[in-house]
Write a protein that binds this DNA or RNA. Structure first.
Length: 1032
RNA sequence: GGGCGCUUAGCUCAGUUGGUUAGAGCGCCGCCUUUACACGGCGGAUGUCGCAGGUUCGAGUCCUGCAGCGCUCACCA
């Protein structure tokens, strides 16, 4: 189908507003929120896959009569988008800080506008039946209002707090990174065993470390209380080398004992641990946690650029230690090791290979760095516990912890279900091990945190409280933290507190900002983690918290939240699914969706994830260009299996010649296989083009002479061929109906008619079951079998001689086409909608009316009713009988094929009574399909030029198949047949002589084996008779 | 290291609670330009189901171990 046709169809859909959700209309609500794509780049095939499945669901349930809403939109993707814009500015030699915040945000906004438009046009091109009138962006006013309300509520309820914690710090770009921006890389390092002297001179303890430079910030040495040496060291101190710092020995279960002293031999740490752990709370997450348990001092010995510094929390640096100040992390490590060696305190060095987090932006090792951040207390039962309680009972592994179970019941408990079920475990273990969520980001692009802070002496701040009291609690919420250690204190104790404190004021709206700022409060410059706004997506898009404020959103929130299903990929379970569940339940008291469907990932032909930075992602518009949208969608749906990820071998299309070719592959320094940046035209090597990798990495820039090459993949031929087949078959069928004889008669349904209707009913049921199970490849399979195999190969071919005169058959044909278009529509909306106009004329005249199948007329296929088939339509007898017909036709065709007999050549079939009865019951179908001129009984004297085959244990003869029998070839064919059947018979005889089988297998199964054996034996003897008849 | 998957025809993938001759599409081979479709029709060939054990009358399917691949969480003792 040409591309222009897709455009025409889209125009008809738009004109009818068929996809606009109206909550006041009847119907069970069926809603889906699109996982909003990042505005960092255009969509690739992974998105096309995700959206094809959502559209399939939406269109299916719309046709089933549901009141559907598929809400589209995009995500501002804070870090990612800011980064791409900064990179682009860098090409012009500019930095973010060369602009004001407003100017910079304006530049990001421009980028966002461009890519949002691209993404929405891609969704349209893919035929997505979204309600585009309700398109949202996570920084829209409606979303901003929701973010503000959610933050304020959480802050007021004590679920947001300011914390001094370790973050992933990139010392090169000097910004915090989220966990998913940290890449683990294998690094060859060492274990250094450092001797720390006890302060009483009674000896040493030895610690093992891979980061000796952090010892400058050590504030304790840990030992496991079960360690036999622990008792003797109790209360003792270590004199930390270089710094001379006196640090305690603390006992903590966390410390791993060496295997030699009773440590768990299965714990790899036990093999290289000494049992003594250097504790550096400011530079290691686990040490930080340990430090909290033992109230240890926190000494940060680094500057934000990663160099050793005594100006960021290190106050006791002596002269010896100062020798290291100013050194980079790397240099400090060398010098410290050298110092220990020179002082005879280096016990041992062992090589060690381990993973170290690196910044994906600068590729330097990430530093756990102490800083003040805002956190959501997701460990609170109101969030974490609530999420766990929402899980479907049968999907919970083991039992939920008693404290989680004990909490109060709530709507949606036990109703969240994962498809495939195994992903529930992922969700569960994430929540069981969850840590508080750091939500502040040192960025400019995003929702700015609505907290204003004033730092001052406690008493001075207490004096402000009276003034602030003029702001009602619905508009402002207060929290106080002690500056020295970041610990939060109650507002009421401020008056009696001493020292510097931070008074944080969260405002419900900016209306009070000026007031607050006049008191000297400053707004936090940081923005919220992108997932904070994403977590509110199913609410913010429908007008929460104040739907009355947006007239066009009236009724949406109550009708479409909870939504029906969330469709996404598995890496999103923790990042997004979890947070939506926690927030929706906390703010609205119900689930954001009932089902979570996790689909596979589309990888490139080398098994690599499609990624923007690698440039190995394929633009769906390229595939639409090469194969058409329906072809792309059908193929994607057929790839939606739920066991493994899908590999998609990718080719290039030469822009000079239009030819498809396999590109030249190279291996990047990171070990990835990608299409070389510049490729030569296969027709004319002097002509060049740029690959997606070249464009994405900036290695090559497309020009008029050297254009960007489109991608394609032969995998989509499946869908293209299928759509083409349907197109031709429908046109052929319609032309036959149009040419029907005026005196066509109503006749009883023939076997093949009954069979075709039964197949339609069967396919309808299979498709519904597959969709209910979210097993989409079964949908494609059922459609392929119905349309290509059943309808085209068997039905159409069977009715060719009779269709123009049999009025009943004409109605069966019309009903079949009508039903097939409806069934296929959710997968291939364009071709079905295009063909729909012709089908409508059949509906109008009742020319498709068949008892047992409901196909009410409709203006558009997109809003036509899903077929309803009565149970009587599933004619089991017709199915079984036609299967025999098919087997008979196959058997005759096979011998025709083997003998290479022209299809034009008609033969006479000589057969037993039962076979002749079968042929006659099929009303001419066997004759049509197998090229049979006439059917006769087997004469007592076998005609000389007959070819023999076996069928259901009897011998069939084909007369006139060949001019002369080739005895040698015939004997070879028959003996091959006998050998094959003998082999099968042997297996069955073996089975039936096995006493265990006879004693334990199901009786029906044994009976079946006996029947099959008898048939095989009958076939063998029939073949042997034929063999004998050939003489010598 | 923990968890979850995966390993089936040359390629990309199915294979429901163990059951008889393990499937599909592409590719390959032969025939057919038969009046819907060559993006087609008819026929055909191709599998020690990753490896090694075990349970069972019977294992691609269940169990154990091993190898390889992928994802994910953790990991700077």
């Amino acid at each position: 189908m040409p591309l222009e046709a897709e455009g025409l169809v889209r125009e008809r859909w738009n004109a009818s507003r068929a996809f606009h959700a109206d909550p006041s209309q009847p119907g069970e609500p069926y809603s889906i929120f699109i996982p909003p794509p990042n505005v960092t780049a255009a969509l690739h095939l992974g998105h096309a896959f995700n959206n094809a499945l959502q559209d399939l669901l939406t269109r299916h349930y719309r046709m089933k009569g549901a009141n559907t809403l598929w809400l589209p939109g995009t995500d501002h993707a804070g870090i990612a988008t800011q980064t791409v814009v900064e990179k682009r500015l860098l090409l012009q030699g500019k930095r973010r800080t060369d602009f004001t915040r407003e100017q910079f945000v304006g530049k990001v906004q421009e980028w966002k506008d461009e890519y949002e438009a691209t993404i929405l046009s891609q969704l349209t091109a893919m035929g997505c039946s979204c309600d585009f009138e309700r398109t949202r962006f996570t920084m829209d006013e409606t979303c901003a209002v929701a973010v503000r309300a959610a933050f304020f509520t959480l802050f007021r309820d004590g679920l947001v707090y300011r914390g001094k914690r370790l973050v992933n710090w990139d010392p090169a770009t000097q910004t915090a990174l989220s966990d998913d921006e940290v890449e683990m890389e294998e690094v060859d390092g060492s274990f250094w065993y450092l001797k720390y002297p006890l302060s009483d001179g009674s000896g040493f303890v030895t610690v093992a470390t891979t980061r000796p430079e952090t010892m400058l910030g050590d504030t304790a040495v840990g030992v496991n209380p079960k360690d036999p040496r622990a008792a003797g060291l109790r209360g003792k101190f270590v004199r930390l080398p270089i710094t001379d710092r006196l640090i305690p020995i603390v006992e903590d279960e966390y410390v791993v004992m060496p295997a030699s002293l009773g440590g768990d031999p299965l714990d790899p740490k036990a093999s290289f641990a000494t049992g003594f752990l250097k504790v550096t709370p400011a530079h290691d997450q686990n040490d930080w946690d340990l430090g909290l348990r033992h109230s240890l001092a926190v000494i940060n010995v680094m500057a934000p650029d990663g160099s050793i510094s005594d100006r960021h929390g290190w106050n006791d640096a002596n002269e010896a230690a100062r020798a290291f100040v100013g050194l980079s992390r790397e240099d400090a490590r060398k010098k410290i090791v050298a110092w220990f060696k020179a002082n005879n305190l280096l016990e041992e060095v062992r090589p060690y290979r381990h993973s170290v987090g690196h910044s994906y932006r600068s590729h330097v090792p990430v530093e756990p760095y102490l800083s003040d951040q805002w956190y959501v207390r997701v460990t609170d039962d109101r969030l974490r516990g609530s999420a766990l309680r929402s899980m479907a009972k049968d999907q919970v592994e083991g039992e939920l912890a008693p404290d989680v179970r004990a909490a109060g019941a709530m709507a949606g408990d036990g109703e969240l279900r994962f498809f495939p079920a195994r992903y529930a475990k992922n969700f569960q273990s994430w929540h069981e091990n969850i840590r508080d969520w750091c939500i502040s980001r040192q960025l400019w692009w995003g929702h700015q945190i609505p907290v204003w802070t004033k730092r001052a002496d406690a008493r001075a701040l207490a004096g402000l409280l009276g003034t602030l009291a003029s702001l009602p609690s619905s508009r402002a919420a207060l929290r106080v933290a002690r500056v020295s250690d970041g610990v939060e204190v109650a507002v009421s104790t401020l008056a009696s507190a001493v020292g510097e404190h931070d008074l944080h004021v969260a405002l419900a709206s900016d209306d009070d900002a000026a007031t607050i700022e006049s008191f000297g409060f400053k707004r936090d410059p940081d923005v919220l983690d992108t997932w904070f706004s994403s977590a509110l997506w199913p609410m913010s898009t429908l007008g929460w918290p104040d739907p009355a404020k947006w007239p066009e959103m009236a009724g949406l929130l109550d009708r479409y939240n909870p939504s029906s299903v969330l469709c996404t990929a598995r890496e999103i379970i923790t990042l997004w699914v979890s947070r939506m569940v926690m927030f929706n339940r906390y703010f609205l008291g119900r689930l954001p969706f009932k089902h979570v469907f996790i689909h596979a990932m589309i990888q490139d032909g080398h098994g690599q994830k499609m990624s923007k930075s690698l440039g190995n992602g394929v633009d769906p518009r390229d595939i639409i260009h090469s194969h058409g949208c329906d072809a792309m969608r059908f193929t994607l749906v057929s790839m939606a299996t739920n066991t493994q990820d899908v590999r998609l071998p990718v080719d290039l299309v030469d822009p000079h010649s239009g030819e498809t070719f396999g590109p030249k592959w190279i291996t990047t320094s990171g070990g990835y296989s990608v299409a070389d940046a510049i490729q030569s035209s296969p027709k004319d090597p002097s002509k060049k083009m740029v690959s997606g990798f070249g464009a994405a990495t900036g290695v090559a820039t497309p020009t008029a002479d050297m254009p960007l090459a489109r991608n394609t993949s032969a995998r989509f031929d499946l869908g293209r061929n299928f759509a083409n087949k349907l197109w031709n078959a429908t046109r052929f069928a319609l032309s036959n109906l149009a040419a029907a004889a005026a005196d066509s008669k109503e006749e009883p349904l023939t076997l093949v008619d009954r069979w075709m209707l039964a197949r339609v009913a069967h396919a309808t049921q299979s498709i519904e079951a597959a969709i209910a199970d979210y097993e989409f490849y079964r949908v494609a399979e059922a459609l392929y079998d119905l349309i290509w195999r059943d309808f085209c190969d068997w039905y159409l071919e069977s009715v060719k001689p009779t269709i123009r005169t049999n009025a009943t058959q004409q109605r069966v044909l019309a009903a079949s086409i009508d039903a097939m278009l409806r069934l296929l529509h959710p997968v291939c909306p364009f071709v079905t909608e295009t063909l729909w106009a012709s089908v409508q004329s059949l509906e109008a005249g009742g020319k498709n009316s068949i008892a047992g199948i409901l196909l009410p007329p409709a203006r558009l296929c997109a809003i036509a009713a899903w077929p309803t088939c009565a149970a009587t339509l599933r004619d089991a007898e017709a199915l079984a009988q036609f299967e025999r017909v098919q087997a008979l036709v196959d058997a005759i065709r096979r011998v025709r094929g083997e003998r290479q007999v022209s299809p034009k050549r008609k033969v006479v079939l000589l057969a037993s009574d039962s076979v002749r009865a079968l042929v006659s019951s099929a009303s001419g179908v066997v004759e049509t399909l197998a090229g049979i001129q006439s059917v006769q009984s087997v004469p007592t004297i076998r005609p000389s030029a007959c070819v023999a085959i076996t069928f259901e244990g009897s011998e069939l003869l084909l007369d006139g198949l060949v001019d002369a029998i080739d005895n040698v070839a015939e004997k070879a064919r028959l003996s091959a047949l006998i050998t094959e059947r003998e082999k099968q018979a042997l297996g069955m005889r073996l089975k039936l002589s096995n006493e265990g089988y006879l004693a334990k297998a199901k009786p029906e199964l044994i009976e079946e084996t006996r029947r099959k054996l008898a048939e095989a034996e009958a076939d063998i003897s029939a073949a042997e008779r034929a063999f004998a008849a050939l003489g010598t």
